[in-house]
Design a protein around this nucleic acid. Structure first.
Length: 472
RNA sequence: GCCCCCAUCGUCUAGUGGCCUAGGACGCCGCCCUUUCACGGCGGUAACGGGGAUUCGAAUUCCCCUGGGGGUGCCA
């Protein structure tokens, strides 16, 4: 059997959308699952909108995610000659024709058609021009684009791996531009030729491209290629409410999730589950497990709604499953930007360990240890927590007792269990422990108190407790 | 408007004619555990869009409607 070859082919016209990442992931998973080749192709035929910055971003993001490619990146902008030569072949064969309508004219006629209740689409004005007519228009300086001549009747049908047979009536597909009047090739042409030239065997892409497949395949056939790749159109990812996933719904770019403290394997795990799941129904899977379980043939047909809450849960699961050393390495950059030169590595590692069981993002982990890397008199006290503290009638007594308890604790333990100091007041420790949390950590919820006090050291803990007591 | 695709709890999904008084996960609610918050454990809430047809029997097959999404670009 021939080598399986897949490509991820984004257009570098902005940040990498979360939906594109899922497409990249499925392509990568399938390639790895069958031992095929994963190719990165940059579809930058629209030179006006494509940017180098966007290309760099795509490469960085894929790298961060761990979706390494075996070939490429292949830039379509470097292959214009090949596309234009193909366009010429289509022209020579009569499969395409020169069109001298301007963009504005076409748009205007379309709008008129809509007003008249007729179907929009190119009206075929230049479809059957004689050589003399073409020469006259060219001589008159009219812009020249090249349009593909779609069949007048019959149906276009292809078999989709996920959806089965998909077809459309050719009469509803009007002639479309394959070379712009500025001489650059359009997606349909570049895509069709590249898939041939790169020996692509499987095309996994978003369902939004399902209609364009008929046109790409028509070009491919007109170019003399009777074979075709296996197509699988993936269900779209929608935002909350079923609308298109957009910035309005929060983060839509990978960088935003990375900066918010999400792990690449967790993000990929969640994205993989949007439209697919392993046979045994497990949900928390490593990248390796995804590779071995993935089967593009079992991908769902219906669009999925992105749920940030479930992603967050998933991230927590991955955090908890990590080896401490790996987690420490992941949190480190976040801690560095926050605590800069104050970071004390042994303390930091212990704090990560304490946070591992209770955090859902790396940012949470880094934030929870803030109290360890701040001066005692600079401790940032959360207003809501302080308010809760002042609501406890016996707060002064609690702090007094805890201060005394901490003062005489000998030897200094790994965990300073201050419960006896509160028990002595006849209070239920669980109900008022937040008072001590707030005094020591600056907020009523955070890392476990006893090891935190020990980590802070006696003098530092006492200063904080006394400061809080004095403020009451 | 026309074309294409889709349709099970709020969300992701299992379910491929009887095992379904529809299962799991996230979320939400309650209880337990507990030094806060979490984690964990237990329990609860909640769905087959509507109408026909086929069948002894339909979430599962077919048709219509409705709804949602996508396309209809000299974007991809």
């Amino acid at each position: 059997m021939a080598d399986v070859r897949l490509r991820f082919s984004p257009a570098p016209t902005g940040f990498l959308h979360i939906g594109s990442v899922r497409t990249a992931l499925y392509n990568w998973l399938h390639a790895r699952h069958v031992g095929g080749t994963f190719i990165l192709r940059i579809e930058d035929t629209d030179i006006a909108r494509s940017t180098q910055e966007s290309i760099d971003q795509i490469l960085h993001v894929l790298h961060w995610l761990g979706l390494e490619w075996d070939e490429g990146p292949v830039l379509q902008s470097h292959r214009f000659d090949a596309y234009l030569a193909a366009a010429q072949r289509l022209l020579d064969a009569g499969a395409a024709y020169e069109c001298f309508c301007t963009e504005d004219e076409v748009r205007e006629r379309n709008e008129q058609a809509m007003r008249d209740g007729r179907a929009p689409g190119y009206d075929g004005r230049c479809r059957n021009l004689t050589a003399e007519e073409r020469a006259a228009r060219a001589a008159a300086g009219r812009p020249r684009s090249i349009r593909f001549r779609t069949p007048d009747d019959g149906r276009s049908t292809f078999v989709d791996l996920i959806r089965g047979e998909v077809s459309v009536e050719w009469s509803t597909v009007s002639d479309f531009v394959i070379v712009r009047s500025n001489g650059t090739p359009v997606f349909f042409l570049a895509n069709a030729l590249d898939d041939v030239d790169m020996d692509i065997t499987h095309v996994l892409r978003g369902e939004d491209l399902i209609d364009s497949t008929h046109r790409v395949l028509a070009i491919r056939r007109a170019l003399g290629h009777a074979d075709q790749p296996v197509y699988a159109h993936l269900p779209l990812i929608l935002g909350p409410g079923g609308a298109k996933l957009s910035k309005r719904h929060g983060a839509v770019s990978v960088e935003e999730y990375r900066d918010a403290g999400y792990l690449a394997p967790a993000l990929l795990n969640y994205l993989a589950l949007l439209g697919w799941g392993p046979e045994d129904g497990r949900e928390v899977l490593t990248l390796d497990e995804l590779v071995s379980e993935f089967d593009v043939g079992t991908v769902n047909t219906s669009a999925a709604t992105f749920d940030p809450k479930k992603l967050e849960w998933m991230n927590g699961e991955h955090i908890r499953a990590m080896r401490l050393a790996d987690l420490v390495a992941e949190v480190l950059p976040f801690a560095r930007t926050r605590y800069d030169g104050r970071l004390d590595v042994p303390r930091f590692e212990t704090a990560v360990q304490l946070a591992q069981e209770r955090a859902t993002t790396l940012v949470q982990i880094a934030d929870q240890m803030a109290f360890l890397f701040t001066d005692d008199d600079q401790l940032d006290i959360d207003p809501a927590s302080w308010e809760k503290l002042t609501g406890v009638e016996q707060a002064p007594a609690i702090l007094d007792n805890v201060i005394e308890f901490v003062e005489r604790t000998e030897p200094w333990p790994v965990e300073v269990d201050v419960r006896p100091a509160i028990d002595a007041l006849g209070l239920k420790t669980g109900k008022v422990m937040h008072v001590v949390y707030t005094a020591v950590e600056g907020r009523s919820s955070g890392l476990p108190l006893f090891p935190s006090i020990a980590l802070l050291g006696r003098e530092s803990a006492l200063r904080r407790l006394r400061t809080a007591r004095a403020r009451l």
